[in-house]
Simulated scan of single mutants.
Amino acid sequence: MPDVGLFTATEPVSSDTPVIIKFSVEVGGLPVYQESYDVDTLREEDKADPDKSAALWLRRLRCVLESRDRPGFSAALTSCLATGMCGDHGQSPGQKVIDPLGIPTEDS
């Protein structure tokens, strides 16, 4: 939390203070993948398409779960987060479809 006083500790966060969500995956205590999200941007995206927003957050969980036992964990995870499909070493053979959304920045 930013510095607050005893009388102001429960007030809303000022609109000029960034609020960030960090998504991090570690292996053996070492970070292998990290993302940061601005809450104001997420709010707008969620307002525009709440189902897609929820599905992409769930993708973050499912991709880690599916990549866990694949060769090339980090590559498999990164590819899965980008495309919604998980394969060994991040490549296409034997990929499992995590969700049907595809690449979020492409119009589908």
Rank of each mutant, 00 (worst) to 15 (best):
M1I: 02
M1E: 10
P2C: 09
D3Q: 12
D3L: 14
V4G: 01
V4L: 08
G5L: 13
G5F: 07
L6S: 13
T8F: 06
P12L: 11
P12V: 11
P12K: 13
V13P: 06
V13H: 02
S15D: 11
S15R: 15
D16A: 06
D16K: 09
D16Q: 10
D16Y: 07
T17P: 00
P18Y: 00
V19G: 07
I21G: 05
K22F: 10
K22P: 00
K22S: 12
F23W: 07
F23Y: 15
S24T: 14
V25P: 09
E26Q: 07
E26S: 14
V27S: 12
V27D: 04
V27E: 10
G28D: 08
G29C: 09
G29R: 10
P31S: 09
P31L: 02
P31G: 06
V32A: 01
V32T: 03
Q34D: 11
E35D: 13
E35W: 03
Y37F: 15
D38F: 11
D38P: 07
D40H: 13
D40W: 13
D40P: 00
D40E: 11
L42Y: 08
R43C: 14
R43I: 03
E44D: 09
E44Q: 15
D46H: 13
D46L: 08
D46S: 12
D49F: 00
D49T: 03
D49R: 12
P50F: 11
P50T: 11
K52A: 15
K52I: 03
S53A: 15
A54Q: 10
A54R: 07
A54C: 08
L56F: 05
W57R: 14
W57F: 13
W57M: 08
W57A: 14
W57S: 10
W57C: 10
L58H: 08
L58Y: 09
R59D: 02
R60A: 05
R60Q: 12
L61K: 14
C63F: 00
C63G: 01
V64A: 09
L65I: 05
L65F: 04
L65V: 07
L65W: 06
E66M: 10
E66R: 12
E66A: 13
S67I: 01
S67H: 00
R68L: 03
R68D: 04
D69N: 08
D69E: 02
D69R: 05
R70P: 07
R70H: 02
R70N: 09
P71H: 06
S74R: 13
L77V: 02
T78M: 08
T78C: 02
S79V: 03
L81N: 02
L81W: 00
A82Q: 15
A82K: 15
A82R: 15
T83Y: 06
T83E: 06
M85I: 08
M85D: 01
C86A: 15
G87M: 04
D88C: 12
D88K: 12
H89Q: 13
G90R: 12
G90E: 04
Q91A: 08
S92G: 00
S92K: 15
P93M: 03
P93V: 01
G94Q: 04
G94Y: 05
Q95E: 13
V97A: 10
I98G: 00
I98W: 01
I98Q: 02
D99R: 08
P100G: 14
L101C: 07
G102A: 03
I103Q: 11
I103C: 06
I103V: 15
I103T: 14
I103H: 10
P104F: 05
T105C: 12
E106P: 02
E106N: 15
E106G: 01
E106C: 03
D107T: 14
